[in-house]
Design a protein around this nucleic acid. Sequence first.
DNA 1: CGCGACGTTGATTTGCCTCAACGATTGTGG
DNA 2: CCACAATCGTTGAGGCAAATCAACGTCGCG
Lengths: 195, 195
Amino acid sequence: MQEQLLSYVKRFVQPTPEEAKYFLSLFKPGKYIKKQIVLQSGELCLVETFVVSGCLRSYMVDADGQIHIVQFAVANWWISDMESLIRDVPAKLTIDALADSEVLQITKADFENLLIKFPKFERMFRLMLSNAFISHQRRIIDNLSIPAMDRYLNFIKNHRDIEQLVPQHQIAAYLGMTPEFLSQIRRKLASEKFS
Amino acid sequence: MQEQLLSYVKRFVQPTPEEAKYFLSLFKPGKYIKKQIVLQSGELCLVETFVVSGCLRSYMVDADGQIHIVQFAVANWWISDMESLIRDVPAKLTIDALADSEVLQITKADFENLLIKFPKFERMFRLMLSNAFISHQRRIIDNLSIPAMDRYLNFIKNHRDIEQLVPQHQIAAYLGMTPEFLSQIRRKLASEKFS
DNA sequence: CGCGACGTTGATTTGCCTCAACGATTGTGG
DNA sequence: CCACAATCGTTGAGGCAAATCAACGTCGCG
């Protein structure tokens, strides 16, 4: 588990053995079983979570009780309610496990100590955030400009791993459509295959 | 101008006079007149731009030729094509001026030198990015869960400054609706005022 | 003055949602 | 190990929000 996180880190920065050891020592391993809640909306988000295996998801419930999925996190992804974590406000998101999962978690306090002791990691988190920012930006554009069927096609092309792990109505909730409508789309796609 | 940027910086980190001086020395002032292009999509984005006054916008043109606005940048906002800037790939976004504007710009090379020389600023950009990430995340949720009229009401509540600066069809392109439909919404809102 | 940018209005169409019902599969307690 | 309940995906009918298309009035500006 620790090695997996370390090799992830090395994509961004090259820690010395000492830095790497300290870094890893701050992460506590944990397990969640399917459906288990990691963070309940309304509470404070106290940790940043790195997914080693399995799948977590973050979602928001809107005024009509509808669930909107913000993110799926499979192996080598991070997940948290960033707003709650950074600004110490109650979380708007709920995070739970879609499958049995192993994680590594660092508390906010340890995280801040880490950055003070080894500013090198500041760089790593900045680069990670840039990536997340870019992909969120693309998702905004896609939601505004691309019809439902193409959004689905893009999704299964770019996230085949997630597609095989989570049920289809979860994908619908991520793409911003109803499960019924996603079903229509799939029917249409299947029939088009004979042409 | 420089003082405006400095006071912005101080929201995040406390630079020493020496750090502040070096930081500011890397930013070159510039002006754009209304409609002038700052970055053409397809080219490389070479600078990060801080808006001192006026208003820039970034947008993407989709397959149907429709324009989708990613961001308005008024005073004290940053704007760039982050993906192009960080990964050295052709920009997908175009940036232009919606009004005569004053800016301060730093090149990618100077930016990297800055972070090597004074890692303190790494922290600042990480915190800035967190904020941008959080607001993008909220926009994704809003676009999926909130009807057009409420998105418009939220926009004019939270961005009255922008609303007064840019024409309405630009706001429509930001909110993901047609100008005609925004017009309908405004008519309905106006008539509701007499009740 | 004349043209282009901007906002408005109305008629029509369409993409997607709602609601309701129904198999198939999974899983779980008795 | 069976029975029953959830969970999941599918189908169809009907409805609504928002897009499209077309026309028009107004204003600011070269």
